[in-house]
């Protein structure tokens, strides 16, 4: 009956946010969401395997904080671009996570963080090519990605 309950619930919520809460829109939204989840089921997407899903809010908080910090950092780099030279560079990292959803979340996190951009993922040897705005502390970048994000993602998508 309902192949993707969370997706269906999210679609109903989105419908209500866009149209305002009335009984008519609740019923219409449920109908649309159920049909949409059936359409999704016929595409047969891979299902994510959640381990410790309750760690997701922790990841969300960490990312919001990191994005704010690196916003300030990149703003500083841009505003004094003439006086002090920053040192941009490429960075290739071997990943341990294999789960496609975890890699997708990591890509979203690293791209939304100003100062690091996800360029290319190679699924053959599981490496990712990043570009960072300030490669002077290369070890710190590796440490952040490996220990701060990847460990948490491996626990969430077990």
């Amino acid at each position: 009956m309902l192949p993707y309950p969370i997706l269906t619930l999210m679609l109903v919520l989105m419908w209500l946010l866009l149209n305002g809460f009335t009984l008519g829109h609740l019923l219409l939204g449920i109908v649309v969401a159920v049909f949409a989840s059936w359409a999704m089921a016929s595409l047969r997407p891979e299902k994510p395997k959640f381990g410790k899903w309750y760690l997701l809010p922790k990841l969300f908080g960490i990312v919001l904080y990191d994005v704010a910090v690196s916003n300030l950092h990149v703003a500083k780099v841009i505003l004094r671009a003439g006086s002090r030279k920053h040192n941009p560079g490429f960075l290739a990292i071997d990943l341990e996570i294999r789960d496609h959803f975890a890699i997708a979340v990591l890509a979203v996190v690293l791209t939304s963080t100003p100062g690091s951009a996800w360029l290319e993922y190679d699924s053959n040897d599981n490496t990712v090519l990043l570009h960072v705005l300030d490669i002077d502390n290369e070890a710190a970048w590796r440490d952040t990605i490996k220990n701060r994000y990847e460990k948490l993602l491996m626990e969430i998508f077990a």
Binding site: V67, N71, A81, T111, T113, P114, A117
Partner: peptide
């Protein structure tokens, strides 16, 4: 947007608009 105009190479410029798209 300022960084987008000032930074010299494409791979550096790709960082600048993410300021606007995040916070």
């Amino acid at each position: 947007a300022i960084g987008f105009v000032r930074l010299p190479t494409f791979y550096e410029r790709i960082h600048a608009p993410t300021l606007g798209t995040s916070w």
